[in-house]
Design a binder for these strands. Structure first.
Length: 167
DNA sequence: GCCAACGTTGGC
DNA sequence: GCCAACGTTGGC
């Protein structure tokens, strides 16, 4: 399967790209939407690229890049009564919710705001720019990926020198 | 903090 | 299986 690309939302107050930089790898836990669940379980694969999106932020936007390092597996936080993501209806013998593991790749020197995405030619059909689209795990096309990475790296170039990145 | 757009739940 | 009520998401 060729490498594919995704956008995943996280509230930076809960878990930000800087948290992922520190942790290096994280479980993408707590997704409780069936459409997103299906992507995590069936579509997203090791090696795929992830745009790390800060939602409910000021401003919201793409903060950096991660990569998938573990395919979908049951989200154990659903089984934990102490977890904020606890779901008593998820049975360990037939898990309802899934997660993947992602690893830090890079943080953009400056966030690419949603408003910029909405104004950028070539991103007209990008899911995150659509009004009313709340899906927290979304597919991204190869071309959208290319454009957003260029925006993120260019944004940094205008403000501060960017250290050599591995990719 | 507001509220529009969605998704889910539950009565019938 | 409809749909009203309710809860959540997430931009503004």
């Amino acid at each position: 399967m060729a490498k594919r690309y995704w956008l995943m939302k996280s509230e930076p107050d809960v878990y930000s790209i800087e948290d992922l930089r520190r942790d290096e790898v994280c479980h993408w836990e707590g997704v409780r939407n069936y459409q997103a669940r299906n992507l995590l379980r069936d579509q997203i694969r090791v090696g795929d690229g992830v745009l790390f999106y800060h939602s409910n932020a000021k401003p919201p936007g793409v903060a950096g890049v991660a990569k998938v390092v573990k395919n979908g597996y049951p989200d154990h936080t659903a089984f934990d009564p102490e977890s904020p993501y606890h779901d008593p209806k998820s049975d360990p013998d037939a898990p309802r919710w899934f997660m993947v593991d992602v690893a830090f790749v890079e943080a953009f020197p400056a966030l690419v705001p949603l408003a910029t995405l909405q104004q950028t030619a070539g991103l007209e059909d990008m899911v995150v720019t659509k009004k009313g689209m709340r899906l927290s795990v979304q597919p991204v096309t190869r071309e959208e990926w290319r454009i957003v990475l260029r925006l993120g790296r260019r944004a940094g170039k205008e403000r501060a020198p960017r250290p050599r990145e591995s990719r």
